[in-house]
Design a protein around this nucleic acid. Structure first.
Lengths: 154, 154
DNA sequence: CCTTGACCTAAAGTCAGGTTTAGGTTCTAT
DNA sequence: ATAGAACCTAAACCTGACTTTAGGTCAAGG
């Protein structure tokens, strides 16, 4: 059993955040003795899951729902599994988005290298993909692949 | 030249957001005729860059700084290049974080598959990494690799 | 006894990034 | 010339996820 202060130290997270999570219902069934919260291994495990689900993009309200399922026991295993299947999709989608962003960033690095070399953006700004080095063209095309023609050309 | 409404249609973004960006200084040198904003290809290009920088995690204030550099001309090419080098690092870092999250999610999917099969979490909850299938152990270890021992075991 | 430290609550405040509202102005087509 | 659409501003409001504040309880140590 841990006090709120011990939990905060262990997880390197402010006490106020733990109280906030509790208020939002993220620790269903958290015990108290004389008004004081008594955290157990169960809440420690909950907190690890909370951190994971937060990183994967879930909101506090949704995490609350998940924690309620956990409290309900074995009848909710399937729901919980499905939630992780859902989150896998969401995280993969986010990673794909970041890969495009990365391609745009790398294209822009090259763009400014050229501008520096030339002393002006004029040449590189007008360059068609066909004229770019192969690697750069690949970045350019990945970055803009699903943009409307009029939105292309950054 | 485009009106604010045409820009909003073109970029599929609310008019109010364009006005907000303008108020925050993201279109330095935006022209007006009789109080009405006149967007040009320059602002369209700015907006594409804004979207990219936002996705890469920059705040509006930082994007404003970048746009001011753009308005200053060729003397800021090096600064702009450096910003994209910085953002590349930030995005790669974020992707690494997401990969760990993904490993935890996949471990949890397997965990609930086992719980469903057994009808209880008891077995899988107590399982040591050594007993897990190799693939799952890899997820488990990636997910928890830099956690303190007492914070491990989700 | 009384101070200190760790805990408690409710409510207000903060921050980012917008969105909505209220009240005007300008452009466009009849 | 006038209606309606599209534009304008300032300021208030919103959401999510916390954090801070103000005021209070309680146990241990000097």
């Amino acid at each position: 059993m841990y006090t709120i202060g011990q939990m905060a130290d262990m997880f390197q997270i402010p006490i106020s955040t733990l109280r906030y999570y509790d208020k939002e219902g993220l620790f269903p069934g958290l015990e108290r003795s004389g008004g004081i919260r008594r955290f157990s291994e169960k809440e420690a495990e909950a907190l690890r899951v909370i951190e994971c689900l937060k990183k994967s993009g879930l909101e506090i309200r949704e995490i609350k729902t998940f924690m309620e399922w956990c409290a309900e026991g074995s009848s909710t295993y399937e729901k919980r599994r499905e939630l992780f299947v859902q989150q896998e999709k969401a995280v993969i989608e986010e990673m794909r988005r970041l890969e495009k962003t990365l391609a745009m960033i790398r294209y822009k690095q090259w763009y400014y290298e050229q501008a520096l070399k030339d002393g002006t953006e004029d040449r590189v700004r007008q360059m068609e993909p066909e004229e770019m080095p192969e690697k750069i063209r690949a970045f350019y095309e990945l970055a803009f692949e699903d943009m409307e023609p009029e939105r292309r050309r950054a």
